[in-house]
Every structure is written in structure tokens, then in C-alpha cells.
């Protein structure tokens, strides 16, 4: 796994609806490996790898966008009120930092609290960019910011904002780079607007009408103190999704992924996720429907600035995706 690629992607700016910068970051890493690269109306970046004609049409989706905030109002004193882009949890906000497209950094904090444990809703939070009034405020209403935090790799323990789903993009990019030949016409879709309702993938799937859809995304784990029951843990390999809150994966595709992992000696886990979903839910129901599944990267602390993955799990996710794509897919 290319750790420099991980750093560039996770530190990149790209809240849902503002993915232009992410497209520019990803494109150089895929250009030499794809037979065709396009950007569709929604802004999805699509790399096509041509098959030998004997296989299926496969859509692989990893989303480029990240959760963030959008400015709704600027106070007379130059503080920014904001709303959420995607699933932003108030408990993660006070003292955190955000960054706008032009590089402006802001500190998030909340109004006075009655007790130290009280957590306000988003509407009682604000962003401080150091402005003294509206006139010297470098930010406008409607501007979007992503969270701001640098990437750390502590041996195999990788921590960053927006592992969701830049680490999925890394898996897709490296799988494309390593995929020497495939029977399938594979469309690697670096999708937009996943965090606001898996919308980019939906449009892409409507356009492509794939036979098979595979999302690469993060999933939560149950391996931390007093966590909710979930049989996914860090360092036990990629999680092959069976069910999440948005869909039930195609049982034939789940079987195939398991078989490919077993044949190649890749460790894997089976995932049953009770909250959240991925681009695969949109691909599954688009047009005449697609056999949909997900390779998930086990991730702790999802939707915080310290999303945490294990580099071995990432490497094995890449291997599994290559195994699936390079061989026939019998459903």
C-alpha cells in the first residue's frame, strides 16, 4: 500500500457536493492504468478498465466526498453559524478545526453550557476564523468546509479524518493499478455525494446499468470498550458485507467473495451493520437492479477526525478486490 497516496487522499478537501479538488488529486494515480477516464454530470470520476469480453459489467464504487459543514450565517462579530453536510455528530465538534476550499482554517466551539457534560446541537455551535466582522471575514454563506487534521501512521495504526471513504478510494486505485487483466468491463467510480444519500453512485449506476456493483467503504467495529455488539474487529481482514441498514447484499456475490478470499488465503470477516449504508444500496436498485455487495475496511471512530484503520486490513482489501475482479464472477 502506498502510504503517500493515503496521506494525499485523506488530507484532501472534498465535502459532499464540492469534490472537484478530490478529482484532481485522484486522476494522476489512475490515468496510466485505465483504458478510459471520464467525469459524468454529477461529477463522478469514472475509470474504465476493459475486459476480454467474457465477463460481466462491474461497477466498483468508492466515494471521494467527506462529511463537513456549510456556512448558513455570519454574525456581526464575524463568527460563522453552520449546518451539517452528512452525518456530523455534535459531540465531535467543540475544539475541532475545519478548513474551507481556499485553505481558510476555522475553530469550532459551542455557546455556554450548563454543565461540562452537556452537548449542544449544531445550532448552538459556531466557527471562528479570526475575523472581527463581516467585512474582514474571508468566508461567505454557502461555503463548505471539511474537517482539518493531519494524517498519522503509527506503524500499522493509521489515523486520519475522512478515512471514510478515502481509504476506500485507495483500495480502488491500488486494485486498478495491480489489475493486470480482467474478464470484466470494470468501471471504477470515484463517487460524489455519498454522505448525503449515496446520490453520485445512483446516477452513475443508472448510466452504466452494471451487472454487479461492489462498493468499497468503511464499516464500524465492535472491538472497543463497551461497544455495541458487532462481530467486526480491526486487524482481522476486510469485512464482506451481508447486511446493513440500507440493503441485504446479493447472497451469491457474498459467497463468491468468501470463496475468492479463501482460495487466496486472505483473512476476512462477515459484516452485519445495523446503522448506515453505502453506495452499493443505490447500485442495487438502479434500473433493472445489480448484484450488489461491499468490501468494507474495518474502521474505529467513524465520522470523527480520528477514523482509524489497520494497514494490514487495507492491504488485504486491495488483494481481495483484485482477486474478485481478475477472475470470473459466477453468481
Amino acid at each position: 500500500m502506498n502510504i503517500e497516496l493515503v496521506k494525499q487522499l485523506v488530507e484532501g478537501y472534498g465535502p459532499s457536493g464540492f469534490e472537484d479538488h478530490m478529482r484532481d488529486i485522484i486522476r494522476p494515480f489512475i490515468e496510466d492504468y485505465a483504458d478510459e477516464i471520464s467525469v459524468d454530470t454529477m461529477g463522478n470520476l469514472i475509470a474504465r478498465k476493459e475486459g476480454d469480453g467474457s465477463g460481466l459489467k462491474v461497477m466498483v464504487a468508492a466515494h471521494m466526498d467527506e462529511i463537513g459543514v456549510m456556512v448558513t450565517h455570519i454574525t456581526e462579530k464575524g463568527f460563522l453559524r453552520f449546518t451539517n453536510i452528512g452525518g456530523v455528530f455534535p459531540v465531535t465538534l467543540a475544539g475541532n478545526r475545519v478548513q474551507f476550499a481556499d485553505g481558510t482554517m476555522g475553530v469550532v466551539y459551542s455557546e455556554k453550557r450548563e454543565s461540562r457534560t452537556e452537548v449542544h446541537g449544531l445550532d448552538k455551535h459556531y466557527i471562528d476564523v479570526g475575523a472581527t466582522g463581516r467585512d474582514d471575514c474571508p468566508v461567505s454563506v454557502g461555503d463548505a468546509a471539511g474537517f482539518y487534521r493531519s494524517f498519522r501512521a503509527q506503524d500499522d495504526f493509521l489515523v486520519a479524518k475522512s478515512m471514510d471513504d478515502r481509504i476506500g478510494c485507495v483500495v480502488a486505485i491500488e486494485a486498478l493499478q495491480r489489475l493486470e487483466s480482467t474478464p470484466h468491463d470494470v468501471y471504477f467510480v470515484f463517487s460524489v455525494q455519498e454522505e448525503v444519500g449515496t446520490r453520485g453512485a445512483e446516477a452513475a449506476a443508472n448510466g452504466l446499468e452494471p451487472d454487479v456493483g461492489i462498493a468499497i467503504d468503511v464499516t464500524t467495529t465492535g472491538d472497543t470498550p463497551e461497544a455495541a455488539t458487532m462481530a467486526v474487529e480491526l486487524r482481522a481482514g476486510p469485512a464482506i458485507k451481508v447486511r446493513d441498514a440500507g440493503m441485504i447484499a446479493h447472497t451469491g456475490l457474498v459467497r463468491l467473495m468468501r470463496r475468492r478470499a479463501e482460495e487466496a488465503g486472505i483473512p476476512y470477516q462477515l459484516e452485519v451493520l445495523e446503522g448506515g449504508s453505502t453506495d452499493a444500496r443505490s447500485i442495487q436498485i438502479a434500473g433493472p437492479g445489480a448484484a450488489a455487495g461491499v468490501i468494507s475496511i474495518p474502521t474505529r471512530y467513524v465520522h470523527t477526525v480520528s477514523e482509524t484503520v489497520d494497514s494490514g486490513d487495507v492491504e488485504n482489501s486491495i488483494k481481495l478486490l483484485v482477486e474478485v475482479l481478475s477472475k470470473p464472477i459466477e453468481l
Binding site: 440500507g246 440493503m247 441485504i248 444500496r281 436498485i285 434500473g287 437492479g289
Partner: peptide, 9 residues
């Protein structure tokens, strides 16, 4: 029962 998948498709 989960999402009307068969009807849509």
C-alpha cells in the same frame, strides 16, 4: 420487506 427491491427492478 426491506426496500421494495424486486418491485423497482
Amino acid at each position: 420487506e426491506t426496500r421494495l427491491l424486486g418491485a423497482f427492478t
